[in-house]
């Protein structure tokens, strides 16, 4: 294992977070605060409780997940797309570094960034509403696995994208709608039966449900199904990345 190479990529990617501190840290904190103002204070005052949890507290896991998903995808996709765009990818491709190590460096950094953002949102939310974490280990497991799997997805999208528009399409048109419709701000049991079934096709439902369970022990679906779904999603992403590197898709001609 070429550890110095993994470390070099990781540090290089994390330094981008330092350079864009406002965008990386302050921006998610501001948007979370706005969500609390709009959904917590304005709308939440009209919704009493969901499954015995106040509405403001109820949306915290969903808000964290929403940020984790979008941050993971955008960080990882930008991380690999920018060297492709600038041409500096030649250095990674000509270095004595395996596909696994390249992925670990880029995806590890992207996942770390989104976990940091998730933690900041959790701390910010704690200023507004009371939060309890019933199962800290599971909470951490969901957080890390979700960040990893969506960073892998972002990495794939960054390799696939051959222009800036494509890079922006996936987070805007796929990830954000799935996250909003995945139960970030409501329990799927509040939906009519038909839409409850349709919603189950949304993979994000399982992530948010499992993550919320680790906080309040309330879940829309079984926690084991949630963790299995993340596992399946993770495996699909890993297989796709293996195929990309095996064929050199959009990286080596």
């Amino acid at each position: 294992m070429n550890y110095p190479a993994i470390k070099a990529i990781y540090i290089f990617e994390m330094s981008r977070m330092r350079r864009t501190l406002f965008q990386s840290i302050v921006s998610p904190v501001i948007s979370t605060t706005l969500y609390f103002v709009v959904f917590g204070a304005a709308i939440g005052s009209r919704i009493t409780e969901i499954d015995g949890v106040s509405y403001g507290s109820f949306i915290v896991p969903g808000l964290i997940m929403l940020s984790i998903l979008t941050e993971s995808v955008s960080n990882a996709s930008f991380g690999i797309y920018f060297p492709k765009f600038s041409g500096s990818i030649y250095e990674v491709l000509s270095a004595p570094i395996s596909y696994v190590e390249i992925t670990l460096g880029y995806v590890g950094a992207a996942a770390s960034k989104s976990i940091i953002v998730g933690a900041i949102i959790l701390l910010t939310a704690n200023l507004f509403v009371p939060i309890q974490i019933a199962h800290p280990f599971w909470m951490l497991l969901f957080l890390v696995l979700t960040a990893l799997s969506f960073s892998l997805l972002g990495f794939i999208l960054g390799i696939w994208a051959d222009n800036w528009e494509k890079l922006a399409i996936a987070p805007t048109l796929i990830i954000t709608p799935l996250a909003f419709l995945g139960g970030s701000f409501y329990s799927i049991s509040m939906l009519p039966p038909f839409w409850q079934k349709i919603t189950l096709l949304n993979p994000v439902v399982y992530l948010i449900s499992g993550f919320r369970w680790s906080f309040y022990e309330n879940a829309d679906v079984s926690v084991y199904i949630s963790i299995s779904m993340i596992g399946v999603f993770l495996m699909i992403c890993l297989i796709l990345i293996w195929l990309i590197f095996k064929t050199g898709y959009r990286l080596r001609v």
Binding site: A5, F12, P83, S88, E91, A95, I97
Partner: peptide
């Protein structure tokens, strides 16, 4: 090269990348 990086950090990156 990475436009927004400093000269020193980009050279250190290259060294690390090659193990």
């Amino acid at each position: 090269s990475e436009t927004f990086e400093t000269v020193l950090s980009t050279v250190n990156f290259s060294r690390g990348l090659f193990g």
